[in-house]
Design a protein around this nucleic acid. Structure first.
Lengths: 135, 135
DNA sequence: GCATTTAATCATATTGACATGATAATAGCA
DNA sequence: TGCTATTATCATGTCAATATGATTAAATGC
């Protein structure tokens, strides 16, 4: 009910790369896909997209692969999910009512905004490092 | 990014019926669809499903239509959305990680649970009456 | 009984998310 | 130079969500 499969794969892969941040070599898609048990070619397309969005860096050829563009604690979940969720950041009415905006709110609008902005805050303030560190 | 189109239609229709709770006659799908500007036959299928789930009551024939099964302030958003969202109520890991459960949580698990349960609380505690009453 | 109004159901189309497989481009290395 | 490992791209397939249109069943009023 919340994130698409695509976004979940992306977050898992990003967390996987976060664990390998220290390595000199980038990690090939094959390793990530095998490590996570997700479809290889599909993941490849997702990672490519994240590379275009400057969340990852890709290198071709032997010894190539993907790495994070910055340290895990500098990459928020929102930067991974944002490019993959078409509606990310759109302020909607929960009901998708065209007439329900901040100007002309339904009675539940404020309560929903408050829940909704907690969600946003979670994605903005949680980083890939938080997905990795043990408790 | 949060509710499906189907659920949004359902909530809009339920709010529409909440406004008509006082009327003696049930409201035909056609009136609801026209009032909301949503596809009639598709809405019909959704309302039928909500009737099977005992959220609405349907009556056939002339003067037929749909009405709420109870007063608007007795119907939580969760009872409308629940039957329409296959994954509603499933406790997941945000990432869909098979290995990330309450027993063996990733580091962000608790923070996510807290956001996630606020969402649930919102849907459980907000009623159709809250979608109607002016501020 | 018959016509009308409505929900219920059936058949089908469209679209985008998810996924697979094959090929092209690039980089390293012998 | 040519071989190989890798990403990048292309073509295609599957399936569920969304949507449309037609038909059937039930209730009402004449």
């Amino acid at each position: 009910m919340f994130l698409s499969q695509t976004s979940r794969y992306a977050l898992q892969a990003a967390a996987f790369l976060a664990e390998r941040w220290a390595e000199e070599r980038p990690t090939p898609v094959g390793d990530i896909a095998a490590g996570l048990g997700v479809p290889r070619n599909y993941l490849s397309k997702i990672l490519h997209q994240l590379a275009r969005e400057r969340v990852l860096v890709s290198e071709r050829g032997p010894k190539g692969g993907f790495r994070l563009v910055a340290a895990p604690d500098e990459i928020a979940l929102a930067s991974v999910v944002g490019p993959l969720e078409p509606a990310y950041g759109e302020r909607h009415c929960l009901l998708g009512r065209p007439t329900c905006s901040d100007d002309d709110p339904c009675a539940a609008h404020d309560r929903w905004q408050s829940v909704s902005s907690e969600l946003t805050a979670f994605l903005e303030s949680t980083t890939l490092a938080d997905l990795v560190r043990g408790p």
